[in-house]
Design a protein around this nucleic acid. Structure first.
Lengths: 139, 139
DNA sequence: GTGCATGCAAAATCTTTGCAGACAA
DNA sequence: TTGTCTGCAAAGATTTTGCATGCAC
């Protein structure tokens, strides 16, 4: 996995730095769709000199390389996902967590849109909102 | 339409002011899903003393009253839509416009998710991305 | 007249940019 | 060695808050 990132970075003329690998690794290892701030805090103990600016700059590069996708679930900040496969997300309106929704077939739905719109479609994002089981149990 | 807003505001203990009506009217009359800044600029000629803070405060109230929905299509700012019916949106990646997608049936898609997730689902937002006909023609 | 609303300015957030020293190749 | 990268600080952009004056009721 890191081999892939390393190769891709070099191919596109970017240097391979410990910070860049660390940031990608956090994203690849997490299912929580962390924001820049969350990545920064998670790396703080290991890279005490790490700066938020570096996180943002690296995210920009990872986006450009197609290694991550950007989520915008209605919060004030963006979240990032190293799983670039086509999948929906569901957000808990109580605790704010964002989970993946795998195994959903959206082809029929997307096909309807392709037929109905004059746009040339290049991508899509589906967000569901609700209450996660943990928060529901508390209520 | 304004009757409705007026009544709703009063019912919930909010005062009916020209600014609030004007802001709602901009949203109700527009299909462009304007941001706070866009609403502000559109009202500038008519209400030269209008402040951005008032736009934001009013949006907060309209949201609370269920008169508008908030869009988050991946830009730095939020957009607002006075059409609160269940519909998807499509965003042009060239010019940034956001259009409605009506007449799409998402029930089957949503049902799949309801069955697959342990969340109690309360809502959803579907964003499509692509190139609008105008921008496609220019390319 | 009372109390909420407006509008200004300042603050709070999130993100980007500029630049000097540091590091990958 | 060379050119890019890091990390700090400052700047930008969007949104929120505090407060004095003004307006709806």
């Amino acid at each position: 996995m890191n081999v892939c990132v390393t190769t891709l970075l070099r191919e596109k003329g970017f240097k391979v730095t410990p910070q860049r690998l660390a940031i990608y690794n956090v994203l690849a290892a997490s299912k929580a769709h962390p924001s820049a701030e969350m990545i920064f805090h998670q790396l703080q103990p290991i890279y005490p000199t790490m700066s938020l600016a570096t996180v943002y700059k690296t995210i920009e590069i990872l986006k450009e390389l197609g290694l991550i996708q950007v989520l915008n679930a209605g919060e004030d900040s963006f979240r990032y996902d190293a799983d670039t496969s086509n999948h929906s997300h569901i957000c808990c309106q109580r605790c704010g967590r964002v989970d993946d929704l795998h195994g959903i077939d959206s082809t029929e739905f997307v096909q309807q849109v392709v037929k109905a719109t004059p746009y040339r479609i290049t991508g899509q994002q589906f967000y569901f909102y609700g209450v996660c089981p943990e928060c529901a149990a508390k209520e």
